[in-house]
């Protein structure tokens, strides 16, 4: 398997996590977290775990993000 793809994917994961850590806008952080979940799903599909990838795509990238968005809608969008 190609090492370049591995490293690109892992670098994307780390970059997305850093963006989530630094973003002051919680809405942006949640959306980046969703893309982080999707990249993780891709990684796991690639690692021979399609069941887990499917669960992560549906739960991690989908439901969790929606719950975060609802919570942000009910509270504040800006982090102080």
């Amino acid at each position: 398997m190609s090492l370049t793809f591995d490293i690109l994917l892992l670098l994307y994961l780390v970059a997305a996590a850093l963006v989530v850590a630094q973003a002051k806008d919680l809405l942006a952080a949640s959306i980046v977290f969703s893309s982080y979940g999707l990249a993780l799903c891709l990684l796991w599909q690639y690692r021979g775990a399609p069941d887990v990838a499917m669960a992560e795509a549906a739960v991690g990238a989908g439901i969790t993000t929606v719950l975060f968005l609802v919570a942000i809608g009910r509270t504040t969008r800006r982090e102080k």
Partner: peptide
Amino acid sequence: YVILHGHVTPGGGFQGGAILAGLFI
């Protein structure tokens, strides 16, 4: 399909349930 075929192909109850919940949302 994911739910009912989960014992043969990738998928299963949790994944299919999450997809259904996503559809509902």
